[in-house]
Simulated scan of single mutants.
Amino acid sequence: MMQARKTAHRWRSVLALVLLAPLVGEYLLGNTPISEIGALPLFVPLYGGGALLVREVARRTGRGWPTMLLLAAAYGLFEEGPVDQMLWNPHYGGIDFGLVYAGTHVPLLGTSVALLQDVVSMHMIWSICVPIALVEAFSRDPRRHWLGRPGLSVTAVVFAAGSLFLAAMQYAANDRFMASPRQWTVGVVLIAGLIIAAFCVGRRPTLPSTTNAPLPWRTGCAAFVLTSVYWIGQSLLRDHVPDWIMAAAWLALAAVAVIVGTGWSRRRGWGAPHRTALAVGALLTYVWVGFTHAADMGVPLATALTGNVLFGTGALVLAAAAVRSTRRHQESRHLGAPSESQARS
């Protein structure tokens, strides 16, 4: 009976993750309106399969969040490079990307530094890592993998098939644009470099800290502030600040996030409540950002706002449930339930 419950929980977790990744990455952000909810199955193999592969590969190899973050960054470059070719197409989706991102275009890279930064930010944080952290909040032991080898193999096949299908759709929809061999080479090298780096981190022992970790609500507030600052820069400052200064600001913001996050995660008492709080903070940023995209979604404003309200409300309910679940698991351990080692952050 206990084994049956564990199996059911794992499959619920898998289903939740493959659905949550596109719902956050596309619909909550406001890239796709609620009137196109029927397109969700098209996004599931790429977004959902990618998130599940990132999570399962990291957990099955005994690694944690540093590995997942780097694999998520590689996913972002893969989606917007080989799949969509947005990184290289100057007129992707009918938008003059070549002009919008011209200020930081680097011929050697074959794309724009600012575009690379945007792609990594959105997909690494919101398409992959936030959904993983929220679903793991409902698990007693987030280190356990959910899929066996057959399930992992099927996920990889579905992810590859979905990627090829969407790549063909984008190729046809964007006037059969095809990047140059140099652009493909640079893209593959960057993706491979991130994947290699992902397996060079995450298992090194760290010296224990005698300093207590901050309260979880403070880490959540920090995540909300940092991610909101990023989006405020995107919305209000990009047209008024030189492009390379914006790129440098992104690097500074990323450095602050890495330094502070790494330092906090090594402190005494850091655990699941903090990771859930970080995910919730970032999720709440997408709630307000989605409303700023309402006028640009290509549907009546009332339709766009209806979607913002529904998906935003769903995000708030999910955030509250994730925090409550994490707290319940913590309390059960403190009351003498079988202990679980904290997942490496």
Rank of each mutant, 00 (worst) to 15 (best):
Q3H: 12
A4S: 09
R5Q: 10
K6M: 10
T7K: 09
A8Y: 11
W11Y: 13
S13P: 07
V14K: 01
L15D: 06
L17W: 03
G30M: 02
P33N: 07
I34S: 01
I37S: 03
I37L: 12
L40D: 10
L40E: 12
L40I: 15
L42E: 14
L42Q: 12
F43D: 11
F43K: 04
Y47K: 03
G48W: 11
G50A: 02
L52E: 08
L52Y: 04
V54L: 07
V54D: 10
V57F: 13
R60I: 04
R63V: 12
G64V: 03
P66K: 01
P66Q: 02
A72F: 06
L77Y: 05
L77A: 02
F78Q: 04
E79S: 10
G81D: 08
D84Q: 12
Q85F: 09
M86D: 06
M86F: 09
W88G: 06
H91D: 14
H91Q: 14
Y92V: 07
G94E: 12
I95L: 14
G98R: 02
V100H: 12
V106I: 15
L109S: 10
T111D: 08
D118V: 10
V119K: 04
S121A: 15
I125L: 13
S127W: 02
V130I: 11
A137E: 05
F138I: 08
H145M: 06
L147E: 13
P150W: 11
L152G: 01
A156N: 00
L166G: 00
Q170V: 13
A172R: 15
R176N: 13
A179T: 12
A179P: 00
W184Q: 14
G193L: 03
G193F: 07
L194K: 00
L194R: 01
I195N: 01
A198E: 13
P208F: 02
P208Q: 06
S209R: 09
P214D: 03
L215C: 05
L215H: 14
R218H: 10
T219N: 14
G220I: 00
G220N: 08
G220R: 00
F224T: 11
V225Q: 05
V225G: 12
T227G: 08
W231I: 03
Q234V: 10
Q234G: 09
S235Q: 15
L236Y: 14
L236P: 01
V241Y: 13
L251K: 00
L253V: 11
L253Q: 09
A255R: 03
V258Y: 11
I259C: 06
I259T: 15
V260C: 04
T262W: 12
R266T: 10
R267W: 09
R268C: 01
G271E: 07
R275H: 03
A277G: 03
A277R: 01
A277Y: 00
L278A: 12
L278E: 07
V280Q: 02
G281F: 02
A282N: 06
A282R: 00
T285N: 14
Y286S: 10
V287G: 02
V287H: 02
D296L: 14
G298P: 05
V299N: 01
L301M: 03
A302T: 13
G307A: 00
G307M: 00
V309A: 11
T313S: 13
G314V: 07
A315P: 11
L316M: 09
A320E: 06
A322L: 02
V323N: 00
S325Q: 12
R328W: 08
R328N: 06
H329F: 13
Q342A: 15
